[in-house]
């Protein structure tokens, strides 16, 4: 009996060890791709990166030098445009949902935001194409910015709603009780209290849309030249990386790595800084 017992326990402990081993190795395997992807991007990217990369226009095949200056600027312009589209709608939507969104209408809007956030970005791209490219008859940075802006909306709405809800309702009521107009209370008291957190959410979603390629392919399209007009095609880092990556030319491939490094640095940089910042906020 006693012997049986220890044997049984030993068997159970062995199964536990197998379980722990499986879980641990699974976790380690999951980290491998991150190391590999980032490793390649850093090594290949650094060897192809130089100062000209940030300032010059793309060079034709075979010519040395050249860069992605226009695409880097383009990405920032397009992201700026998308903020103009996405932030007002997202922030106002979120505030509205937090303060007045208890009823049926609130439920419906929240549901719509959920559906919107689950639509693949390329389908949003089609939407922007149909709305702004097909009607205006040419590709434009505006259409690209619009597509990315639509992608931002559900995230920004959700973050804003959650953070505004965390502002104690008594604060809102106290403001109203002082006779301050409602819009002023919302703007000066509620929104300001929640601002730090909302900003974090916005930056994270900016980092996300900055890496979007699919919706830009047939909205902002691409350009080999400096362009600051938003009603014309505009280059972006992601589309440029894509075009260079699928090209058969080695020096363009190298440029794709350099572009990836730049993009990854910006995106990961934003993500990491914002995470650190937000952690401090939540503990402080």
């Amino acid at each position: 009996m006693e012997n049986n017992w220890t044997q049984e326990v030993r068997k159970r402990k062995l199964i536990e060890k197998i379980f722990l081993g499986t879980v641990l190795s699974g976790t380690l395997i999951a980290i491998v791709p991150l190391v590999l992807v980032l490793g390649y991007v850093f090594i290949k990217g650094f060897s192809a990166l130089d100062f000209n990369f940030f300032t010059q226009l793309p060079a034709p095949v075979g010519e040395p030098g050249g860069g992605m200056g226009n695409a880097i600027v383009g990405t920032f312009i397009i992201v700026g445009l998308s903020c103009l589209v996405g932030l007002p709608i997202g922030i106002f939507g979120g505030i509205w949902l937090a303060l007045y969104g208890q009823g049926k209408r609130g439920f419906f809007i929240r549901y719509a935001a959920d559906v919107l956030s689950s639509i693949p970005s390329i389908v949003i791209g089609i939407f922007a194409y149909v709305l702004l490219v097909a009607t205006l008859k040419h590709f434009s940075a505006l259409a690209g910015g619009f597509a990315l802006g639509v992608i931002m909306i559900p995230t920004v709405t959700r973050t804003t709603e959650e953070l505004v809800k965390m502002v104690p309702r008594t604060l809102y009521e106290a403001g109203l009780a002082l006779g301050i107009p409602e819009w002023k209370v919302i703007l000066k008291i509620v929104f300001r209290t929640a601002w730090a957190g909302i900003f974090t959410g916005i930056m994270l979603s900016v980092a996300r849309i900055m890496g979007e390629t699919a919706p830009l392919l047939f909205t902002a399209f691409n350009s080999m030249y400096w362009n600051f007009r938003i009603d014309e095609p505009m280059a972006s880092m992601t589309v440029q990386i894509y075009n260079y990556a699928i090209s058969p030319f080695a020096d363009w491939n190298a440029k794709a790595w350099a572009g990836s490094l730049t993009l990854v640095m910006i995106v990961l940089g934003i993500t990491i800084v914002v995470r650190k910042f937000s952690r401090r906020v939540s503990y402080g």
């Binding site: 980290i31 890496g211 990386i241 990836s260 993009l263 995106v267 990961l268």
Partner: peptide, 22 residues
């Protein structure tokens, strides 16, 4: 480890594609 796995989500799709190709 949690942060590292979250960072996987922050890497743009096109970068995965590039790595995938080569």
């Amino acid at each position: 480890i949690a942060t590292m796995i979250d960072l996987l989500a922050a890497i743009p799709s096109v970068v995965y594609g590039l790595w995938g190709i080569f």
